[in-house]
Design a protein around this nucleic acid. Structure first.
Lengths: 344, 344
DNA sequence: CTGAAAGCGCTTACAG
DNA sequence: CTGAAAGCGCTTACAG
């Protein structure tokens, strides 16, 4: 027993006194092998803990049983935001269940993803929140006939398989919730401009305010970068310029944490003085204090659907799949929203 | 131009009118190629965006330029704790800079990691917080001569390369800080038993209390599971049974968030009524309110050192490396600790 | 400076 | 039911 982990099929074959072909058949569960032969081979395979070399398999155009998960954003941004951690978690879970390895690629310009594809390291790709600037890379995947699916809308490439949230509908839900509690002077803190979802959410905010006949002052709308701190900064500005605001609709839970912090630091309280509603429903939303009302964008469902979609694309290329799946968001009411304060 | 991404070295060679050998030489920067030949080859390579098939390379016993990052714990636990996200972030950053792909393996029993090794998918492995139960798998890696390095102490396997925090020293720092603020009745909330670090931290707590001649009641020590919620639950118990406590030393920042929440919900405030100090210094620690004093266990430094160590092990196997690197923790004072309240 | 040939570890027709 | 041979896409001695 060499113990070096470099046992090959030939050595197994020799030790069993059969040919490589036979060992291969046993390994791959092919029919037409004498039960005794099979048993003997399996014993030796077991003995050495033999695993066929993944490269040799890959050479034959077999699947690599490895997919790439690509997050084409700044790595510091990604790992500070629980949204990506959650998405990654469910993708990892789903792909594991179906027997795939995951190559994790966090690369702004997708170069490494393209390389991995050209090098045939992966059977397919999940792209998390791709942006219009990633279209050339995605065209390459199309040309290479590499299956890929995106989490997040890709209006710039309708041919791409995509699983996305209805951000407009979700944002409307948040606004309706606040209106139902009697709020009218509602401030909005938006996400970074480069994310298409930011635009969809702010559009819903404006439409809802307009539909209710409420004037939106410029000062009532601030942009953040999705960090906790940026949420706090935006809140301070709003509190200074529009103290008569009674509620905040915040485009991400992470920023909403900052909003709660800033309100508390200003000596006011949530939800007595100000209601706050976030967007995403990341796990920490229910664990902060007061727990955060938010829009559940079904991170788990999206990740699971997208992962299964990709693996179906890989395993059953002949089966037609839906190009675009849109998931409705739901309202999640916790302790950070309440009936409007009555001091006005 | 086939555009299918399956251009091979033979096709490049044909189009250039040279042999595969020559193309290979150019690709690998070997000497002795006529400059003109080289230029022509490079042009065609460029034209097709050719990348040598990673499997064919792997077949030759070349490095795969891929390492496995293994987190052998429950996947739900992992991704809810920012400690792992942070560690992953810096590993990804470091390995990328040095040109490696990362296979992310979250598997409780390390089975997938062992398989990946036997299949020769990876050049080496980083193990994040391995436990004694993982010793058999680690022995396999040793036998397979797969380089690996751990983040977290492996007392059960001194042969393993490991980069770890001095938990005892860090915990002592926390206790000294609290003592210096006049606290004596200090409660302790520990991490899960299965983590060796939990034991080291609680030992320091007990030693420090004893050294200061303070009696530790059973009720002053509670265990949590490192979740925010478990921190809150433990705090409630302590507040009920030992209201005269003035400070909390909490074995992880995540639990400390729960401690702050529970104190606030009990109508008391941090740090006026109770001081709280955590352990880890994950990014969110400075963003909660009040910002959390904590022990910085140098997550970034550990990750970077471990990743570079592994890559050195892979690239320069002849160079001797230190088996064990121990990183000192530092005290990080923020707003959650203050001079003891004077009501007693 | 360049090419032909062998070989890495598998699987898959093709014979028998 | 089983084996010998070819071939996947590279690199590397070995010739020239």
């Amino acid at each position: 027993m060499s113990g070096k982990g470099n046992v090959t099929i030939s050595e197994i074959a020799r030790e069993c006194g059969v040919s490589k072909s036979t060992v291969s058949r046993v390994l791959n569960g092919k029919p037409d092998v004498l039960p005794e032969t099979k048993k003997r081979v399996l014993e030796v395979v077991e003995k050495y803990n033999f695993q066929p070399n993944a490269y040799a398999k890959g050479m034959l155009g077999k699947r690599s049983d490895c997919i790439g998960v690509v997050i084409p954003h700044d790595i510091d941004y990604i790992f500070k935001n629980q949204y990506y951690a959650e998405t990654l978690r469910v993708i990892l879970k789903t792909t594991r269940e179906r027997g795939y390895y995951v190559l994790l690629i966090c690369c702004h310009d997708m170069k490494e993803a393209v390389d991995a594809v050209m090098q045939k390291r992966v059977d397919g790709l999940i792209l998390i929140t791709p942006l219009p600037e990633h279209k050339p890379a995605m065209m390459t995947f199309l040309n290479c006939k590499i299956p890929f699916a995106a989490i997040g809308r890709c209006q710039f490439l309708p041919e791409a398989y995509q699983v996305c949230t209805d951000n407009y509908q979700g944002a409307m839900l948040a606004m309706e919730h606040l209106f139902s509690l009697g709020h009218r002077k509602i401030a909005y803190i938006g996400g970074p401009n480069f994310l298409p979802s930011s635009g969809e959410r702010s559009r819903a905010y404006l439409d809802a305010m307009r539909a209710n006949g409420i004037l939106v002052l410029n000062e009532m709308m601030q942009d953040g970068s999705n960090s906790i701190e940026s949420g706090a900064v935006a809140t301070k500005k709003i509190l200074e310029t529009c103290p008569d605001v009674t509620a905040f609709f915040v485009a991400s839970d992470y920023m909403a944490i900052g909003v709660e912090n800033a309100i508390r630091e200003s000596g006011k309280s949530v939800p007595k003085d100000y209601s706050v509603i976030g967007f995403d429903n990341i796990p920490i939303a229910e664990q902060i204090s007061p727990s955060l009302s938010t829009i559940d964008q079904q991170i788990e469902a999206k990740g699971e659907i997208c992962a299964n979609l990709l693996l179906d694309l890989i395993e059953k290329p002949e089966v037609e799949q839906k190009r675009s799946v849109e998931i409705a968001s739901t309202l999640c009411v916790r302790d950070s929203t309440a009936v409007v304060r009555s001091d006005e």
